Amino acid sequence: MSGTAEVAQSYARAWLWKAAVPIAVPVLAALTLLLILLALLAAPDAPASAAFPACSIGGTGATAAGIDLDAGQMGQAQTIVTVAAALGLDPHAATVALATAQQESRIRMLANDGSSPALTAEQAAVTATSLTYPHDGLGSDHDSVNTFQQRWIASWGTVAQLMDPAYAAEAFYRRLQAVPDWRTIPLTLAAQAVQISAAGGAYSRWEPFARELTAMLWPAAQATAANPAGAADGVCPGLPVPAGSWVRPTAGAVTSGYGSRWGALHAGVDIAGPRNSPVYAAADGTVVSAACTSAYCDRDGNLGLAGYGNLIELDHGGGVTTRYGHLSAYTVTSGQRVSAGALIGFQGSTGNSTGVHLHFEVRQHDSPVDPVPWVADRGVDLHAPNPG
Rank of each mutant, 00 (worst) to 15 (best):
M109D: 00
I107F: 05
C292E: 10
E6I: 15
S204N: 10
G72C: 01
N352G: 06
P47V: 10
I107L: 15
W374L: 03
L303M: 03
A295D: 11
L35I: 05
S245Y: 12
V247G: 01
A128M: 15
A30G: 11
I196A: 08
D141C: 00
Q78K: 05
A295E: 14
G307H: 06
A14N: 08
V25D: 13
P117K: 05
E212P: 02
A93D: 12
G268C: 06
A226G: 04
P26D: 05
Y280E: 02
H359Q: 11
G234C: 05
E207P: 15
Q177R: 02
N386L: 09
F346K: 00
L131C: 11
S334L: 02
V362S: 02
C292H: 01
L187A: 06
R261V: 03
G355W: 12
W156T: 11
G355V: 08
W15A: 07
A291T: 12
A229H: 08
A39T: 10
L31E: 12
H365L: 03
A94K: 04
G307Q: 06
R337L: 11
G139V: 13
N310H: 08
T120A: 07
I271M: 03
L33A: 13
H365G: 06
D270T: 09
A202E: 14
T333L: 00
P237A: 07
V126T: 14
T331E: 03
H92V: 13
P22C: 05
Q222Y: 02
R323I: 03
V372S: 12
G200F: 09
N112E: 06
G355T: 12
T255P: 01
S334D: 08
A264N: 00
V179C: 11
A97S: 03
A85R: 01
S339P: 02
Q192C: 04
C55Y: 00
Q9E: 10
A253N: 07
N352W: 13
P373V: 05
A154H: 14
S349N: 15
V338Q: 01
T255E: 04
E104G: 04
M163D: 05
G139T: 08
I344V: 05
A267S: 08
T32R: 00
Q123T: 14
L38N: 00
T120G: 13
Y258L: 09
D300T: 12
D181L: 10
L311S: 02
R106D: 11
M1F: 07
I107W: 06
R175H: 14
H266E: 06
